[in-house]
Design a protein around this nucleic acid. Sequence first.
DNA 1: GTTAGGG
DNA 2: CCCTAAC
Length: 637
Amino acid sequence: MVFKRKLDCVSVGFDYPNIPRAPRSCRRKVFNKRTDDDNQMCGMDLLASLAGKLLQECESSSASSNAFEGNNHENFSKEMKQEQEEKYKPFKSESSDLGNSVSRPAYENTSEKCVVNSFSFPDNDGILERTPMSDYKKIPVGCETNNGNCDFHVKSEGITGETGDVNVNTGFEQGEATDALGDGGLITDTCNLEDTTALGVQFPKSVCVDGDLKLPSCVNNGSFARHGNHTNLGRDDDEKLYSYHKLSNKFKSYRSPTIQRIRKSLSSRYWKQVPKDFGHNRADVGVKALYRKRRSCYGYNAWQRETIYKRRRSSDRSSVVTSDGGLSSGSVSKLPEKRDAVKLSIKSFKIPELFIEVPETATVGSLKRTVMEAVSVLLSGGIRVGVLVHGKKVRDDRKTLTQTGISCDENLSNLGFTLEPGPSKVPVPLCSEDPVVPTDPINLSERSEASPTLDSGIPNADDMINSGDIVDNNLELVPYQSDLSVDEHSSDSRALVPVPALEVKALAIVPLNQKPKRTELAQRRTRRPFSVTEVEALVQAVEELGTGRWRDVKLRAFENADHRTYVDLKDKWKTLVHTASISPQQRRGEPVPQELLDRVLRAYGYWSQHQGKHQARGAPKDQDMNRSRALESGVSV
DNA sequence: GTTAGGG
DNA sequence: CCCTAAC
């Protein structure tokens, strides 16, 4: 089903900069609530805050794509339009001429759809091995010709201009991990590719290793010696991914259904879990309902933090065990002598496919930020690592590697890792609103996994299924819940769309009789300041439609901007009127051109006086607007 | 579901 | 941006 939806999504011709709603991880609330106990989690905070910051930038940037081509003749006098055209020539020049046709956003049919099949994580030790890359910032983006013809790198921040092969070295024998993705921050970059597919973005081999897992068998390689104590043990970062769908010609954004979690069993590092929305992202739920629902389902944050903390302690304990198991606490020189040490190198992890959609007019920067946001959210949303031995998932985290059959004596090619949606240990969302509470038996297995005491390591349903999907050392992400959806676990590795089934599963754990504490659960949407372009579109729409038809305004000027509700538009208009009424010195935020503010006042004055009178017919004449404005300001005309 | 207005 | 009353 998911796969099918994905195809639908790709084929549907909707085109709006697919700026996903901000991840909950960016929310201030979370950070404010943090206690001292969370100090250790600052790494995740950094990432989250970075994501938030990028998101804002992304928004302002991408907003430029919200080019409203207001060539609608319904309402405006020619003078007005000419004036506007004069003032927005640069803007209009990029827009298709829609003539007298129904007003359509100029970005229609001009957006880029990219499917990011995978992301390569930066090399943990990339600082040493990174190879310089040439500048690839300017990329030709053509919807028809080069669709998807782009590539994304995940780079460590501060190493601008460089990237490198993705290498996640994993050493079970060490304690402290180095988070290549965490503390240093992430940036994305793009470059062109020589080869693309219709649906997917391919990655140059130098960057994407296509999930190959190289497992040097017990080799005291230079890499290990070099990194010493800093060898990575894996990560505890959480991942989340986006997929964007539009159904019924309406754009829908699916938010991180595939919330996944990497768990590292040995590292003492811990990434703070960022609030995320499990659930309610089912395809059969309308966007609005989806939003509404989500807002009421965030009660698990505190709970989740607690859980994380507990898990971290558990993790630490595990680490100790490992250390006791023969590994001195960090003396690198000793390690090669340890016969029972297991060294393996994970060449790359493949991040699940991401749908990225940006308009052609979007800047490369906004593209980067869009991808960055998706990746950041993915990383923050929860992902976990599964270990496969001989294609069979090892569920018991308490088993030693030896017990599991992982040792240098064994053929490590039998060892595999999977990235799985994390929230199998779904904290119980305090959401009881959704009546859909499937009682899938799989949930039981998931629940048992959440409870270590019940974890017997006995293969269960998802074991079988996953082992069927991932039998080799391929690290491609396979939706952990692929078993719940019929069609998507085809061999197509691209079928890694966030799986709505995950939501079902998450919901399945929702207790029925728990009333949501709305005040605690509600989290604000991330603030997304209106760009000048958006303001212009809004002003124009209001000029044409008046101030009492926000739904129409929405449909006319922001139909494809799902993150702008008509309430948002109404609110923005309210603030615009206020802004226009105060002195420029008192204004904050991105300055709105005075010309626009003048138009705001003009329209405001006019529609204040013509409430409803002309609404059915349309906008006032320019002269009327001027007269109205003059009237309001007490100036005779 | 929309609109209007206070927070 | 949220919430809610009113329609």
